[in-house]
Write a protein that binds this DNA or RNA. Sequence first.
DNA 1: ACAAAGAACGATAACTATTATCAATATCAA
DNA 2: TTGATATTGATAATAGTTATCGTTCTTTGT
Lengths: 133, 133
Amino acid sequence: MIRLTVQRQAILDLINRSNQHWDAEELARCLGQNGEQLGIATVYRGLAALENAGLIQSIQLADKKRYERANKGHHDHLVCTKCGDIKEFCDSEIEMRQQQVAQDLAFHMTGHQLLIFGICESCSKDSQEDKTA
Amino acid sequence: MIRLTVQRQAILDLINRSNQHWDAEELARCLGQNGEQLGIATVYRGLAALENAGLIQSIQLADKKRYERANKGHHDHLVCTKCGDIKEFCDSEIEMRQQQVAQDLAFHMTGHQLLIFGICESCSKDSQEDKTA
DNA sequence: ACAAAGAACGATAACTATTATCAATATCAA
DNA sequence: TTGATATTGATAATAGTTATCGTTCTTTGT
């Protein structure tokens, strides 16, 4: 049985209270600053357990896994390759087409991950300024 | 300037001759068996160089990066979580909606990666057999 | 053809994210 | 309370990948 210990409660609270996409290291650091210092292994295990329980969700980026609140429902992500910022979106058209594609290929779909890479609005502005400066 | 050395030629040939999604380790092993033994660092660098040159392409899975021929054009992937098999598909509807989503969010899209996870046809059959056996 | 400049090679050390180990501790259920 | 079980935290280990560095090609200008 999965236990919701004080350590896991702390992890869950922090994630739920924020809108970020945390990696384990960042999260541990932030908890440490709040006086809730946990071992890094505990953080990794806690994140895995919470995700398993459906209390948080994650996206797997090239380098590391990032966790976020689960109470926002399903969505996909836009990842800015300049500043690392992550935006969210959900498009029902895309969701439906995926189901269709899987069905057409006799594939029993259990999940998906769509990442759109590019430059976010504020980074685009920054680079324009660079040119005019 | 990027050089197409014998080592890189060997990597490129192997990838072009096959339809697989290779990881660096597998590729090095296979080349070794063909009498083309290269240092693992050379393989990694070669793959990166070839991808940079647009001669091969890659997908980033959770654990490792996998490379494939580039002469098939853009497509996305269905990944079987049981046997690891990777199928390909391309859906113009999805491609278009992505552009739209990015535009709506003032995001300058430069690329994307869509992975659909699930159980492939032959693995589904296998597990049915298991039940009836 | 020759020498200097620039790439690439290969062995291996280093790095990063993550998981495994294990003794100590905390929690639950009867 | 007690025993069974889960979790913790320190740390070792693992996996994939990149960095280092001396050596070995290539290329290019003369």
